[in-house]
């Protein structure tokens, strides 16, 4: 999933301060799963904003909505009946959702209420870790299903740096050493010999380095 964290309330307050009526829009997808911008968080932020402004003696009218998917024009269209009744939109979706609203409703200001963080997985209740950088050319088949690009602090492709201690990264002891994980996994699979395979210098073209990316499926594109 795409993970996110809510921005500090002070920053959000400054975004919406000039307005009297806003639309606060959550998303039912990734940001709901990582508890950053779903229906529940929309309600919490709405209350927090109203309380903050009441303290200042200012009234902020907030209309709350949560779309099925904010990155999908079909669902963003649902805002069309409400958009003219507000001065601005505050989005709790990831950056994709914010931009979808900006693109569809060009004359309405839209502000992000969350910081989009990374593509990751849930480790345990309340803990999410980065798993994928979307490099566009997946190496997981060579590294036992553990990604050195996303999970090694130094993005090393051919074994560890030598700085790890007890399986933890020297840069951050709370992070597992990706190459320890890869070695353990290859051993469990009985594929230790793969550890000595040389992974060539990575071609970064399929990643963001080749410019903003697009997928066009000719069989589906209309």
């Amino acid at each position: 999933m795409i993970t996110a964290e809510r921005k500090p309330l002070e920053e959000i307050i400054e975004y919406v301060r000039p307005f009297g009526k806003i639309l606060l829009v959550g998303c039912n997808e990734c940001v709901t799963v990582c508890s950053a911008g779903g229906r529940k968080e929309v309600g919490l932020l709405s209350s927090a904003l109203q309380m903050a402004f009441m303290k200042e003696g200012k009234m902020l009218e907030i209309k709350e909505m949560t779309l099925e998917r904010q990155c999908d024009p079909e669902y963003v269209e649902e805002l069309s009946g409400h958009i003219n009744q507000v001065d601005a939109v505050l989005s709790m979706a990831c950056g994709c959702g914010v931009q979808e609203i900006a693109q569809r409703y060009r004359e309405k200001p839209v502000f992000p209420a969350v910081n989009t963080k990374f593509m990751g997985a849930s480790e345990r209740q309340g803990v999410w870790s980065e798993r994928c950088q979307g490099c566009g050319n997946c190496l997981l088949g060579l590294t036992g299903g553990i990604c050195p690009v996303a999970r090694c602090s130094k993005r090393l492709l051919n074994g560890p740096c030598g700085g790890s201690t007890k399986g933890k990264c020297e840069i951050n002891p709370e992070i597992d050493c990706a190459w320890q994980l890869i070695w353990d996994r290859l051993k469990a699979l009985g594929q230790e010999e793969r550890y000595s395979d040389i992974i060539p210098a990575k071609d970064w073209r399929p990643s963001r380095d080749g410019g903003p990316r697009k997928i066009i499926r000719e069989d589906l594109a209309s």
């Binding site: 210098a201 990575k202 071609d203 970064w204 073209r205 990643s207 963001r208 380095d209 080749g210 410019g211």
Partner: peptide
């Protein structure tokens, strides 16, 4: 110049 216009198009930006 954009990396894509050069001679090491696979390099990281």
């Amino acid at each position: 110049e954009e990396m894509a216009s050069g001679d090491h198009t696979d390099a990281r930006v």
